[in-house]
């Protein structure tokens, strides 16, 4: 119901924003003259954004936001957002930029514009060694826990439409379903499975199969083309000088593959 509501409201918002015109457009010049950029980041998607022990947001997306504000030479106004409200926040002009583990899809691109990819996650299905699954086709009646609406969920639903997928609100709850034995397998980002195993060596979270590497993009409104162009330049330079690769290495512990530009 929640997902549907988000869709309906997003559709209403788009319709509304056409009616209202672009009265609240904040493009690059407005950000520079105001000296402030408002960026939305997640705080519930480790390692892209989560609260540290002192409850300050940290993560790959948070670092991206900090670096972008610094490169723009303006003050950063960080806003925590959820998967459900990130696009409404952007469309209603409450934010200039959203950096929130967003994968680009043609449907989403109808609503907002995506920059070139700055990082990515590789998602897979993980579980104990004795479950004989090595590809999506091997899935029979095993239950798989996954966080609802994530890239892993979308991919898995496409790869194995008949699989027994249990959807939970977030990665942590899906992980709890796996550790408590409610689900036999756990579909998540490989970094999450890796870290869970190092923290609790008794957990059996071995890769069953890796689905694919999913690039993540920065989102802006369609009415800020200058900002989009600036972000693309920022990502392009970051790819060349290796700073984006270093960021991926730091937070995901893996190499950043060559990503095509958008």
């Amino acid at each position: 119901m929640f997902k549907h509501l988000t869709k309906i409201v997003s559709a209403a918002l788009i319709a509304g924003s056409f009616m209202a015109g672009s009265s609240q457009a904040t493009d690059l010049q407005d950000i520079l003259s105001e000296g402030k950029v408002r960026i939305g980041v997640p705080v519930d998607v480790a390692p892209f954004g989560s609260n540290d022990a002192n409850n300050n947001p940290v993560g790959l997306d948070v670092d991206m936001a900090t670096n972008i504000a610094e490169a723009l030479g303006v003050e950063l106004e960080l806003q925590q957002i959820t998967g459900a409200n990130r696009i409404p926040y952007l469309l209603t002009g409450k934010l200039d930029i959203v950096i929130s583990v967003m994968g680009a899809t043609p449907q989403r691109a109808l609503q907002i514009a995506f920059s070139s990819p700055y990082s990515g996650i590789s998602g897979g299905v993980f579980g104990p060694k004795d479950i004989p699954v090595s590809s999506a086709d091997d899935l029979t009646d095993q239950t798989i826990a996954v966080a609802r609406g994530t890239t892993q969920d979308l991919l898995l639903s496409k790869l194995a439409p008949d699989a027994n997928i249990q959807r939970y609100d977030d990665d942590a709850t899906a992980a709890a379903a796996f550790t408590s034995g409610q689900a036999e397998l756990f579909a998540t980002a490989d970094i999450v499975a890796k870290v869970m195993m190092t923290q609790d060596p008794s957990l059996e979270l071995y890769p069953k199969f890796i689905m694919m590497f999913n690039p993540t993009h920065i989102g802006v409104r369609h009415d800020s083309p200058q900002l989009l162009q600036w972000l693309n330049t920022y990502v392009f330079v970051g790819m060349l000088d290796g700073s984006l690769a270093a960021l991926t290495e730091k937070w995901l512990g893996s190499e950043l593959p060559d990503l095509p530009s958008l």
Partner: peptide, 24 residues
Amino acid sequence: AALIGFIELTRASQIITAATFAPL
């Protein structure tokens, strides 16, 4: 109210759960 940006009790729990992986 978490949907419109308030970090009230439920949202705070969600955020902490995401960082600790300890929902219980």
